[in-house]
Design a protein around this nucleic acid. Structure first.
Length: 694
DNA sequence: GGTTCTTCATGGTC
DNA sequence: CGACCATGAAGAAC
C-alpha cells in the first residue's frame, strides 16, 4: 500500500499550536451528545410501506452486499451456470477425501515438487526454472499432465476416533464455504488479479472459517478441558484445499505481503507463505534445496518465547532454538542444528532474512499481533550462557536500510497513546469534543490546512421522522440480564437465526444480510455481545490530511478483520432531496460490488433506500474516503426497532488493517440513467480502480 | 514412502 | 494476571 508510515511527519516544532487552536471553524465543533430519538413524532411515510416481516421481502437479494455463509440455511440464489459437484460428505476435515473422482470438492491440486526460489551469486532472487504463480502452476498442470504431479493431500488418519457432531457440522460448513467462495476447484482461489488480492483472499477465507468453527465449538459444547483450536483446524482445511499463497519457500520479500502487514495467528503467516512452520520460530531452506547443500534461513518470528532483545527498531538479538526439554522443561545446551545451523549459514551467505515480530495486541489483552517487519541481515553470532546456565546461540540481525518504518512507528503510536509524547501535527486532540468514548485527533503533518469545513459532531443517526409504532415499551428481550447467548431463546438472538452475529471478541462472524442487535429496549447490559455497533469506538482513530484526497480516516490501533469500526452518523434524507454538492453522502441505493467472487459477479443492490447526509452533522465516518479496493465494508444493523427500514450502517474491517493505514470503503456505483450525481475522479491508486466514483 | 521428532501456539483452567 | 497444560500440525530429518 501507499502508506508511508509516518516518514513524512512534520516535526512538532514546526507547528504553531496556538495559531492552530484559534482557527474559528474548529473551535465551533460543538458536539451534539447522543440523544434518544423522539418516539412521539409520527412515522416516516417514506419507509412505511416496507413490510417488517422476515429478514427480507421476497425477491430481494439476501446477499447484499456480499454473500452470506450460514450453515443453518441453504443459499437462496439459483444454481450457478457452471456445474457444481454435489457436496461430498467429508469424513473429517482432518482426512479430506481419500476417494477418487474428478472435480470432487475434496480434490486438491498439489504438485509434488518442492521447488524453491534461491538467491543466485549476485544476491538477486531468481526462480529455479519455475514461476511461483499459481495460475502458471495450474496451466502447467493442465498442459503437461503427468509432469506436475496432481495429488490429494494425505493426512494422518487417526484410527478409531469417532466422528463427533462437531466434526460433522464443520464438514458441512467447509463444504458450504468452499461453494460460496467459488473455491470448488481449489485453483479458483487463485484467479485473483494480483498477489496482494490472492493473499487477502486466503486470509479472509481462513478467518471466516476460523470464526465459524469457533461458533460451532461454542454451540456444541466440546469435552471440558479439551483444547479447541479453531485456528489450527481452519488452517488445516486451507492447507488441504490449497487455499494458500506462495507455497514455495523463497529468500527475500513475498509477493502480496507488504512490510507492516499484520497477522493474528501463526497459521496466517504460514498460509500467505511468509513463514512456513506452524510453531517453530526459524524457517529455512533445507540443505537439499539450497545451492551449497547447506541450510539457509529465510524468516524468523521473534515472539517473546526466548530471551530476545529488540528494543532498537533496526537491530534484533535473536536466540537460537532448542535447548528446552519440552516435557520436563529441563534446560540443556542448544545444538548447532536445524534453524540454528541455518542462521549460521545465512550469516556467512549474507542472505536476507524476513523478520516477523510478535507484539502484544493492546486491543485484546490475551492476544498477540504479528507484524511483518521486513528484511534483515545477520551480522554476528555467538554463544552465551542463558539464565539456566546452558549455552544459547545468539544472532544479531540488522534491518536493511530504506524500508518503510514499522517497529518505530508502533513504538511512536504507543507513546502517543500513553500521552508520553504528542502526536506531531496535531491540530485538535479530540475533534469529537468528548462525544465519543475515545478521543479522535485531527492531524495535518502535510501542509498548512487547519482543518475540514465546519460541521457538528454527532455520534447518532437521525431519522427525518422517528420510529413508527412506539408500543416498543414492550421489551425486545427480557431474558438476558448478563448478556445474550447464542442458541438461547432470546428473541434478539432468534432474529439472527439463533446465533449472535459476533464472536466473543466482538468480531463479526461473517457477512450477514442484516444484523439484529439488542437495544435499550432490552434488559441486557450495554456490553452484551449482541450490541457491538452501539458500544462506541473501540480503537483510537485519527482524521488526517491525505496527499491528494482531502481528509481521511485511519487508526492508531491494529484492526482485526471483521472488527466493528464505527457507524455512519448523520441525517437521513429522502432520495429526491439529495444535493449534488453534498460530498458527505452515504447512499445505500447505489449498486455495490460483491466482496467475494460469486457465481454472478454482478453488482448488487441493497433492497431498502437509505441516504444519509453528514455534511452538517456527522461522525468520523464522514471522513472515510472511497477506494476501489477498500479495507472496510458496511453492513446494515437493526437496533431500536424491528422495522427494517430503520437500520443503521455499521462499518467493519474487511481484512486486518495495520496501524496508520487509511480506512476506505467502496461508495458504490450510480446507475447511468440516474442524473444529478456528480462523478468524481478516483485517486485510490488500486489496480482495480475504476477511475471514477460518486 | 512412511514415521519420528521438533517447534518462540493457543485457549482454557487454576 | 501469570503459570501451567493439553492438544496441535507442518515439515525436516531419518
Amino acid at each position: 500500500m501507499e502508506h508511508t508510515f509516518g516518514s513524512d511527519h512534520v516535526s512538532s516544532g514546526t507547528i504553531n499550536k496556538h495559531a492552530v487552536l484559534t482557527v474559528k471553524p474548529l473551535r465551533c465543533l460543538a458536539p451534539i451528545f447522543p440523544s434518544a430519538p423522539d418516539p412521539s413524532a409520527p412515522p416516516s411515510s417514506q419507509y412505511a410501506s416496507i413490510p417488517p416481516t422476515g429478514p427480507f421481502p421476497p425477491g430481494a437479494t439476501p446477499f447484499f452486499p456480499f454473500f452470506a455463509v450460514n450453515d443453518s440455511h441453504k443459499p437462496a440464489h439459483p444454481r450457478p451456470p457452471y456445474p457444481i459437484p454435489s457436496p461430498v460428505p467429508l469424513n473429517s476435515f482432518k482426512t479430506p477425501v481419500s476417494a477418487s473422482g474428478n472435480g470432487d470438492i475434496g480434490t486438491s491440486r498439489r504438485s509434488s515438487r518442492n521447488r524453491t526460489v534461491v538467491d543466485d551469486d549476485d544476491g538477486n532472487s531468481q526462480s529455479e526454472s519455475y514461476d511461483n504463480s499459481f495460475e502458471r502452476n495450474v496451466e502447467t498442470g493442465n498442459e503437461v499432465d503427468g509432469k506436475i504431479h496432481v495429488t490429494r493431500r494425505k493426512r494422518k488418519k487417526k484410527s478409531g476416533v469417532p466422528v463427533s457432531n462437531t466434526e460433522v457440522s464443520i464438514d458441512s460448513l467447509v463444504n458450504d464455504m468452499l461453494r460460496t467462495f467459488n473455491y470448488v476447484e481449489s485453483d479458483s482461489v487463485h484467479q485473483a488479479r494480483n498477489d496482494k488480492e490472492l493473499a487477502d483472499r486466503v486470509l479472509i477465507f481462513f478467518n471466516l472459517l476460523r470464526r465459524k468453527i469457533t461458533q460451532i465449538d461454542d454451540k456444541i459444547k466440546a469435552l471440558p478441558g479439551a483444547a479447541r483450536r479453531p485456528d489450527l483446524r481452519a488452517g488445516s482445511v486451507c492447507m488441504s484445499y490449497n487455499v494458500r499463497a506462495n507455497q514455495d519457500k523463497r529468500i527475500g520479500s513475498v509477493p502480496g505481503v507488504d512490510i507492516g502487514d499484520i497477522f493474528f495467528f501463526r497459521f496466517e503467516l504460514c498460509l500467505v507463505g511468509l513463514h512456513a512452520p506452524s510453531m517453530a520460530g526459524i524457517d529455512y531452506l533445507s540443505s537439499k534445496f539450497s545451492a551449497d547443500e547447506e541450510p539457509l534461513a529465510v524468516s524468523i518470528v521473534s515472539s517473546g518465547g526466548y530471551e530476545d532483545e529488540g528494543d532498537d527498531g533496526d537491530v534484533l538479538i535473536y536466540s537460537g532454538q532448542g535447548g528446552v526439554q519440552r516435557k520436563d522443561k529441563q534446560q540443556m545446551d542448544q545444538q548447532l542444528v536445524r534453524g540454528n545451523l541455518a542462521l549460521e549459514r545465512s550469516l556467512h551467505k549474507a542472505n536476507e532474512v524476513r523478520v516477523i515480530r510478535g507484539l502484544k495486541d493492546f486491543a485484546s489483552p490475551t492476544g498477540k499481533v504479528y507484524v511483518y517487519d521486513g528484511l534483515y541481515k545477520i551480522h554476528e553470532s555467538w554463544i552465551e550462557k542463558g539464565k539456566s546456565g546452558c549455552n544459547i546461540f545468539k544472532y544479531k540481525l540488522v534491518r536493511i536500510a530504506g524500508q518503510p518504518e514499522v517497529f518505530t512507528l508502533w513504538k511512536s503510536v504507543q507513546l502517543w497513546k500513553d500521552g508520553t509524547t504528542t502526536r506531531p501535527g496535531v491540530i485538535l486532540p479530540d475533534l469529537t469534543s468528548g462525544a465519543e468514548s475515545l478521543p479522535v485527533c485531527l492531524v495535518n503533518d502535510l501542509d498548512g490546512e487547519k482543518g475540514p469545513a465546519y460541521f457538528t459532531y454527532t455520534s447518532n443517526l437521525k431519522y427525518a421522522k422517528p420510529f413508527p409504532s412506539t408500543k416498543s415499551s414492550v421489551l425486545n428481550c427480557d431474558c438476558c440480564t448478563s448478556g445474550c447467548q447464542s442458541g438461547s431463546n432470546c428473541p434478539c438472538v432468534q432474529r439472527n437465526e439463533g446465533q449472535i452475529p459476533y464472536t466473543s471478541l466482538g468480531v463479526l462472524l461473517g457477512h450477514n444480510s442484516l444484523i439484529h442487535e439488542c437495544s435499550n429496549m432490552c434488559i441486557c447490559p450495554i456490553n452484551c455481545r449482541n450490541r457491538i455497533s452501539q458500544a462506541g469506538l473501540k480503537m483510537r482513530l485519527e482524521v488526517f490530511k491525505t496527499k491528494d484526497r482531502g481528509w481521511g480516516l485511519r487508526s492508531w490501533d491494529p484492526i482485526r478483520s471483521g472488527s466493528f469500526i464505527c457507524e455512519y452518523a448523520g441525517v437521513v434524507i429522502s432520495e429526491n432531496r439529495t444535493d449534488s454538492d453534498d460530498n458527505y453522502i452515504f447512499d445505500a441505493t447505489r449498486t455495490f460490488e460483491p466482496l467475494e467472487p460469486r457465481p454472478s459477479d454482478e453488482p448488487v443492490k441493497f433492497p431498502y433506500p437509505l441516504i444519509i447526509s453528514a455534511r452538517n452533522e456527522g461522525n468520523v465516518a464522514r471522513f472515510m474516503n472511497h477506494s476501489c479496493s477498500p479495507n472496510v465494508y458496511w453492513q446494515p444493523v437493526i437496533r431500536e426497532n424491528q422495522d427494517e427500514s430503520y437500520f443503521h450502517v455499521g462499518f467493519f474491517a474487511i481484512k486486518h488493517i495495520p496501524p496508520m493505514q487509511e480506512l476506505t470503503f467502496n461508495y458504490g456505483m450510480v446507475l447511468a440513467d440516474k442524473g444529478g450525481v456528480r462523478r468524481k475522479k478516483c485517486l485510490c491508486g488500486s489496480s482495480k480502480c475504476k477511475g471514477v466514483f460518486y
